[in-house]
Design a protein around this nucleic acid. Structure first.
Length: 467
RNA sequence: GGCGACGUAGCCAAGUGGACUAAGGCGGAGGUCUGCAAAACCUCUAUUCGGCGGUUCGAAUCCGCCCGUCGCCUCCA
């Protein structure tokens, strides 16, 4: 497949260096607040990339970090009156719970910065020894001037960055863009001993140490949100290449566009967050995944409630297409030996072609909808759609879709016997041709969000989820 | 101020020089089915791609200018 590489700004044919195993490092979260839909978008994208690579026969070694020590974590923990560990544990649990709910496959390992202090100190020590870093005022800084190609990922120059003005002046730094590898501890902060005094790792160094330890360089894919390109990934490249001398640090840099909420990007500092938990309370994982994948991964996507609701409605087409054959349909199919079964190969080809084109999921999804329509049409015409149905499941599976009806909530489960009773009463009324009463029951159930569907096989009902 | 992206139907969103008489989804209109609905299916819903010029046999796609929106440059997926 062709895959865009942020470093070169071009699409490039992707294949793992060893031809078999893809080493994929994806930047994880800093766990100090609830997992939001922007995170969900990003991890759905990388999960889909991984699933597609696996579908093509590669083995994917996926490593993802937790940066579980930083200023915000310390601040939040103090505000809440709990330890940093308690706080991060809580949000790491939240992360796994919501990602599982979104059907995101787990990485091979989730190393945490606080549990990798040894390798981090080794990395910093080596950078100091090589002259790429220097201690100053209890901190240790990376010397950006020593790395000739600093700025190559974000495509900017040191001059340009300084011209940008908003660079903090720091007495201890040799150059304003030097960034911290090790932060000297202030009173009350969590700290670890180091050759430069007690302190904690800076933001970027953990990824350098952990990607080296768990995957070894060069990585095949390094990923994250576009907001990580600078400074995080820029600094990671600088550190990692300086540390090992191995270039490139990563063959392919993959960055997803950011989710927009209304006019603005959704971000922690703006406080305009929608948690995944909230979204999943109303919409199915399938609907949310399809929504996230309905625009190209490098483009920004407008998130809205209406958008989620629209996707939820569209999921019905898939679910309907995948319903097992009724007895009548099975009987017709059995007697209709002469008819060719529905051929789904062209849809798979379209799907693969789209995915090969820099993960063009919008077009892949279009192929899915077209196949679903074809199935719905042809099953009515008595053709066998069984193979096409399993093909649709297979293609959906690459996008992480399950096509399951949304699971009933507890209150809904409790209401089920009563709804069943009303429905069977209505069936009797219909048989007695008391349509007025029957329709009133249907309308009133509908106003409670219970949608009835009559067919030759009887009446089915389901909850209306898309508000 | 520097770097970058984008502007396609009522909404979301693909397509980035010729098969585009521009995917797909939502919404809307009509129809088939139905006791009536719902669901599903069928038909229709952008002679046109922010505006103005230019390059070309040919542009939504390339170039220039203008208008508008957004992102990064600071914690962020």
């Amino acid at each position: 497949m062709r895959l865009y590489n942020t470093l070169t700004g071009e699409e490039k044919e992707f294949a793992p260096a060893d031809g078999k195993t893809v080493k994929m490092y994806v930047c994880g979260v800093t766990p100090y607040s609830s997992t939001h839909v922007g995170h969900a978008l990003s991890y759905v994208v990388f999960d889909t990339l991984r699933r597609y690579l696996e579908y093509q026969g590669y083995q994917v070694r996926h490593i993802q970090n937790f940066t579980d020590v930083d200023d915000k974590i310390i601040q939040r923990a103090q505000e809440a009156g709990i330890s940093e560990d308690e706080l991060t544990e809580r949000y790491i649990d939240d992360y796994f719970r919501t990602m599982d709910a979104l059907n995101i496959q787990r990485a091979e390992a989730y190393p945490r910065a606080t549990q990798e202090i040894g390798p981090i100190l080794d990395t910093i020590g080596n950078l100091v020894d090589k002259g790429y870093a220097y201690p100053a005022g209890g901190d240790v800084y990376f010397r950006v001037n020593r790395k000739e190609d600093y700025g190559k990922l974000s495509h900017r120059s040191l001059e340009g960055m300084i011209a940008g003005a908003r660079v903090q002046v720091d007495e201890d730094k040799e150059h304003p863009m030097d960034f911290v590898l090790w932060k000297g501890a202030k009173p009350g902060e969590p700290s670890w001993d180091s050759p430069w005094g007690p302190g904690r790792p800076g933001w970027h160094i953990e990824c350098t140490a952990m990607s080296l330890r768990y995957l070894d360089y060069p990585l095949d894919i390094h990923g994250g949100g576009q907001d990580l390109i600078f400074p995080h990934h820029e600094n990671e490249i600088a550190q990692s290449e300086a540390h090992t001398g191995i270039q490139p640090f990563a063959h392919h840099w993959v960055h997803n566009g950011l989710l927009q909420l209304g006019e603005d990007k959704m971000s922690k500092s703006l406080g305009n967050l929608v948690s995944v938990e909230e979204a999943l309370a109303t919409y199915s994982a399938d609907a949310l995944r399809t929504y996230f994948l309905s625009s190209h991964y490098r483009s920004p996507l407008q998130y809205s409630d209406e958008g989620s609701a629209a996707m939820e409605r569209s999921m019905d087409r898939f679910r309907h297409a995948l319903r097992p054959a009724t007895e009548d349909e099975a009987a017709i199919e059995a007697t209709n030996q002469g008819q060719e079964p529905l051929d789904s190969d062209p849809y798979l080809e379209r799907f693969m072609g789209a995915m090969d084109d820099d993960l063009n999921t919008p077009q892949a999804i279009a192929a899915l909808f077209d196949l679903a329509r074809d199935i719905n049409r042809e099953r009515g015409a008595g053709r066998s759609v069984k193979a096409a149905q399993s093909r649709l499941r297979e293609m959906g599976g690459i996008l992480g879709l399950t096509f399951e009806e949304p699971a009933a909530r507890n209150d809904e489960l409790a209401a089920k016997p009563f709804i069943d009773l009303l429905v069977s009463t209505r069936t009797e009324l219909r048989q007695a041709r008391q349509f007025e009463l029957a329709d009133r029951i249907r309308d009133q159930l509908a106003s409670q969000g219970v949608m009835l569907e009559d067919s030759a096989q009887g009446t089915t009902w389901r909850y209306q989820r898309s508000a």
